[in-house]
Structures are given as structure tokens and as C-alpha cells.
């Protein structure tokens, strides 16, 4: 069984205690995680399914924000590594005082968890927790800041199809301003040598986004011209009714991905979406379900492999494990 285990992490140690954001990672760190994830992805498709790397170890999923898919993905990843998983969902109404956050950290310390997976609606909240707990912390999304495992699974998915990241043209489209997925992907793709464009209505572009080294477009057709990868972002419902954009109808008309706009990208361009999708808002149903173009289902699959790799290296680094 261990024969299927990749040795990448043995050759190159992961020099971080936590995984809080892609911005903190080097190209080597990212390559290490992607290589290891790749092996886990193969393993997940093959006969062996359950490992014992995390046997006797506890992973706590601490979610201050609703997320079935990310939480499930982490849970499955930890269980496939043989770990015990505890899910804690904190109601939004209970967070109104940050006392709760610090108190939560203290409570978790008393439980002697080995890894903590945290999602929080506020940017930086995961950093705050990481300062207070004595185990490794994985950021599963903090406000509009970062979502590192999403960027890693996106990169893994792309790499498995295009055999590289270097030199690819990637367009990230939609609500860039509020997207942690966009930020993590920008950092990761650029670190790996891809070129990133962002395409959004002007109201959904954050200030000075060009300073992150991306090319900025407000027109989908111009922005999609010649790209290899089209990443669509979810538009939150509360932002589409006359606040940031006038209406769903208008948004779909100008920024929704349909075949007509997709035609401007390279003929073999692939489509991604971090989910959950708003069909008919940011993406046309036919495009989303196009098995030749859409990687959306595979992203979910890669998510488990990436989270296995992250939990693996972080617990290994923290010295929790014998091997």
C-alpha cells in the first residue's frame, strides 16, 4: 500500500507550519504540493483508497460559514489518510464578538487536534486563529482574502490536462473584488509562470488590481481572446440586484459565459468554476455541462487529492507523525 505513496515530500520538506495563503508560498512549495496531490489523485482512482498516515490523529473542520462541498472534501481527504475528523459548524450569529474566536482557539487547544481546517467570513480571521492555536491550520477560505486549496486544485486540474502551467493564458472572470478564489489563483498561477487576466464589470474590480500583475479587462470578448483557461467565479445573489450590477439579465448578457463569448478563447480552451454555480447568471448551462470543455466535475475530484496532500505535509512537518 505504501508503495503507492509519493516520495516528493520526503525529498523536499514543506517549510510552513500552516497553509494560510498562496501569497506566502514559493514556486517550490507549490510544486511540492501539486506533485504530491497528483499522486494522491492517481491513488484515489486506483485500488487503494484508505491510508493510515493520520491514524490516531484528529483533524477539526471549523466552519464559520456554510460550505458543504469544501467541508466534505476536507473530511474525505482526512478520512482517506486514516485520520479522525470532527466537524464544528459555528452559526454566523454566534460570531458577532471575536472573543468567540479567541475562546474557540483556546477550546481547540485543549482538544489537542493535529490540524485545524478553518473557513471564516472575514479576511484575516484564519491568521488570527493560527496565532493562537498550537496545531497546523489550513485556510479553507477567509472572507475575500485567500482560498489556497482551491487554487491548488485548480492548478492541479489544469496541469493534468495541459501538462504544464508555465506560459498558459488564464482568464479569471466575474466578481474579482470579493473573490478569495481569484486572489489565490492569481498568486499561484503567476508563481508558476502562467499569465493571468481578470475580466469583470468595473464595479467588481478591487482597487489597484493591476498592481497584482494581472491584465485587466471589462469586456469578455477582448479578455477571452486567445486564452487557454477560462475560470468563472460565482456572483453572490446580494450583489446582482442593483447594487454592484444592475440585474442578473444584464450581467449574463455582458459577463456570462456562453458559447458565443467562449469562441474568442483558444479552440481547446477549458472552462472551470469553483462552484457552486449560478447557471444562467455567470455561466450558461450548456457550457457548464460540456464534457469536452468543462473541468468543473474534475475540479471537485482534484479537491480531495489536494487536501490530502496539504494535510499530509502539514502534519508531517509539525512532527506529529512517527514516519
Amino acid at each position: 500500500m505504501t508503495a503507492a505513496l509519493p516520495d516528493a515530500a520526503d525529498r523536499l520538506d514543506f517549510p510552513h507550519r500552516h497553509l494560510l495563503g498562496i501569497e506566502d508560498l514559493s514556486r517550490d512549495d507549490i510544486t511540492l504540493l501539486l506533485d504530491l496531490s497528483d499522486s494522491y489523485a492517481d491513488g484515489n482512482r486506483s485500488a487503494w483508497r484508505k491510508l493510515d498516515l493520520l491514524r490516531g490523529h484528529t483533524v477539526i473542520n471549523l466552519f464559520f460559514e456554510e460550505s458543504t462541498r469544501t467541508r466534505t472534501s476536507f473530511e474525505l481527504a482526512a478520512k482517506r489518510l486514516g485520520g479522525d475528523v470532527i466537524n464544528i459548524a459555528v452559526q454566523h450569529s454566534a460570531i458577532k464578538k471575536g472573543e468567540t474566536l479567541i475562546d474557540t482557539a483556546m477550546t481547540l487547544n485543549a482538544m489537542h487536534a493535529d490540524a485545524l481546517v478553518v473557513r471564516h467570513p472575514q479576511a484575516g480571521a484564519v491568521h488570527l486563529l493560527a496565532e493562537k492555536v498550537n496545531c497546523s491550520v489550513v485556510n479553507a477560505g477567509d472572507g475575500s482574502h485567500e482560498h489556497p486549496t482551491q487554487a491548488l486544485l485548480d492548478a492541479l486540474t489544469i496541469r493534468r490536462h495541459k501538462k504544464r502551467l508555465e506560459g498558459l493564458e488564464v482568464a479569471i472572470c466575474g466578481d474579482i473584488a470579493h473573490s478569495r478564489v481569484a486572489r489565490s489563483n492569481i498568486y499561484l498561477l503567476q508563481a508558476m509562470g502562467a499569465r493571468v487576466r481578470v475580466i469583470a464589470p468595473p464595479t467588481l474590480l478591487p482597487p489597484a488590481i493591476d498592481r497584482l500583475g494581472v491584465e485587466v479587462f471589462t469586456d469578455m470578448r477582448a479578455g477571452l481572446a486567445g486564452v487557454d483557461i477560462v475560470m468563472m467565479l460565482r456572483l453572490q445573489r446580494e450583489r446582482m440586484q442593483g447594487t454592484y450590477v444592475p440585474s442578473v439579465r444584464e450581467y449574463f448578457r455582458y459577463w456570462g459565459l456562453d458559447y458565443e463569448k467562449l469562441a474568442y478563447a483558444k479552440p481547446d480552451a477549458l472552462i472551470m468554476h469553483p462552484g457552486p454555480m449560478n447557471r444562467g447568471v455567470e455561466i450558461d448551462t450548456a457550457v457548464a455541462d460540456d464534457i469536452d470543455r468543462s473541468l468543473i466535475r474534475e475540479q471537485v475530484e482534484m479537491g480531495v487529492a489536494v487536501r490530502m496532500a496539504c494535510l499530509d505535509v502539514l502534519t508531517r512537518h509539525a512532527g506529529h507523525r512517527a514516519n
Binding site: G124, R180, P206
Partner: peptide
């Protein structure tokens, strides 16, 4: 500005 965009604030 750039920093608020990076921090997601």
C-alpha cells in the same frame, strides 16, 4: 489600494 486588495479587505 493595492494592500487592501491583497488583504481582501
Amino acid at each position: 489600494g493595492e494592500l487592501s486588495t491583497r488583504l481582501g479587505l
